[in-house]
Amino acid sequence: MTHIGLPHFLTISAILFALGIFGIVTKRNAVMLLMGIELVLNAANINFVAFSRYNVLGVPLSDSRMMVGQMASIFVIVLAACEAAVALAIVLNIYKRFNTINVDEVDNLRD
């Protein structure tokens, strides 16, 4: 009998989430920032799938309700792909305009 339960998965997810946040906060390269964002998204996705796998309510669910989490994760993956495409296009554009992708130097929003 396995000892692995829902909290294990949530722990993995939490660690990945924290790593992603750490990456976002500390990196200066825009591409690295995006990688951090992808990690955060994956962490959230693990949560979705995990909650879809384990019945936390204690009442039997229909198949389609059981699948809600997985469906959400699929849409997250899809939209993450969109996000990555657009974000990288923006990064390319920033690079063309400022000749750098260092986010510290692209702080025109401040003025």
Partner: peptide, 30 residues
């Protein structure tokens, strides 16, 4: 970065292990 990451990590892990219903949640299969 370290502060924020460890804080959120600790928070999430504590929540994950802190809810009794989640710890004894059973696997459901379609």
């Amino acid at each position: 970065g370290v502060i924020v990451a460890s804080a959120i990590c600790a928070l999430l892990i504590s929540v994950a292990w802190g809810v009794p219903a989640w710890r004894k949640a059973a696997v459901q299969v379609p």
